[in-house]
Simulated assay, not measured.
Amino acid sequence: MTSSPALPTRALRNGTEITELGFGAAQIGNLFRETTEEASQRAVSSALDDGIRYFDTAPHYGLGLSEGRLGRALHVTARDAIVLSSKVGRLLVDSPETADRLDDDGFVVPAATRRVWDFSRDGIHRSVEASLARLGTDRLDIAYLHDPDDHWDAASTTGVDALIELRDQGVVGAIGAGMNQSAMLTEFVRRTDIDVVMVAGRFTLLDASALDDLLPLAAERGVGVVAAAVYNSGLLSSETVDRAAHFDYGAAPEAVIDRAVRIADVCERHGVSLPAAAIQYPLRHPAVVSVVTGMRTADHVSSTVARYRAEIPAALWDELDATGLAPDPARRADNSV
């Protein structure tokens, strides 16, 4: 069951309706620090209460912990009322020899399994089957090829072909790729029969590089875009810019910090918080179907939904565009028509 009306949705070309704000489940896989099962359940329940109906996870997140927790938290929710996405490309393989130590890839979980890159047909099928078991469902609404940066040849051939096969069988709905770059995602859109892409960190107030390649082609081909990592690892996540905050998983360059401060000043003059502008910015482009942010607690969910709902005057976007601080995606899309 679900307990409130859904947030506004946008549709993929196969008709799947996705809420404009999505729940990123990496943090409930113990990303960087431990999160309890109870806190994870409350976060997912709060998301449902606040109208979020799109939930994104991956085997990579906590070596399956995120998928398991998400599945348990959603098990009483009507399956047709939500959209679930997970990812393929990293198979989880038993690793008893490392079970006594912690994972070394950012998640605070025992390393009882290890990740193995595999974009083969068999690997994709096995990955989806394992994800369905952990999530406790019979289908994925979206399946993304996960971070295939160093695996273009396999991912763009056997990987996509395997997902198309599963799409034809109804085991997955929409198919696509998710990456921290826009150039290769653009090539997936150009060369393969995918429905959606997830671009992390390349369509934000501080880095709108996806506007130059990915967004125009996605709009032309009818491929949906999900924007993730819109805070660029933290620099845009607070009303006042923290000069010690990370940018793209590392120390932020001074020039980037200074630009973030200038953007925050513009937001303040217009009565808008910097994080609210960061969340709503990608949604100004018609090819974008959702913004996914990581959410660890119920309070985090509530604050994120409040940012999504905040009223932002058009004059803010006009000023950011006119000053060269952040190009207006809506104006750029209009000019490309």
Rank of each mutant, 00 (worst) to 15 (best):
L74M: 07
V301L: 00
A333F: 05
V108L: 12
Y281V: 07
G159N: 06
S4C: 03
G234K: 03
E254N: 11
D193H: 13
V116S: 08
G62S: 09
L316E: 11
Q169T: 05
Y61L: 12
E319G: 04
A264Y: 04
H125I: 12
A245Q: 00
R134P: 14
G68A: 14
L21N: 11
W152A: 15
G29P: 06
D147E: 15
L217M: 03
V226D: 01
R243V: 10
M179V: 09
L166S: 10
L135Q: 13
A25N: 02
E239A: 15
E38C: 02
A81H: 03
W152P: 13
M184T: 14
V230W: 05
A210N: 02
A228R: 06
E165H: 05
A228H: 01
T77N: 00
A154Y: 03
A6S: 14
L217T: 04
R221Y: 07
R331I: 04
G71F: 11
L320T: 04
E239M: 11
A306E: 01
D56P: 02
N180T: 02
S46I: 01
V108M: 09
A112T: 10
D328R: 13
V189R: 04
S290A: 14
A143H: 05
A229H: 01
V196G: 03
T186K: 07
M295K: 00
G24C: 00
C267G: 08
H75L: 11
L325D: 08
V230T: 13
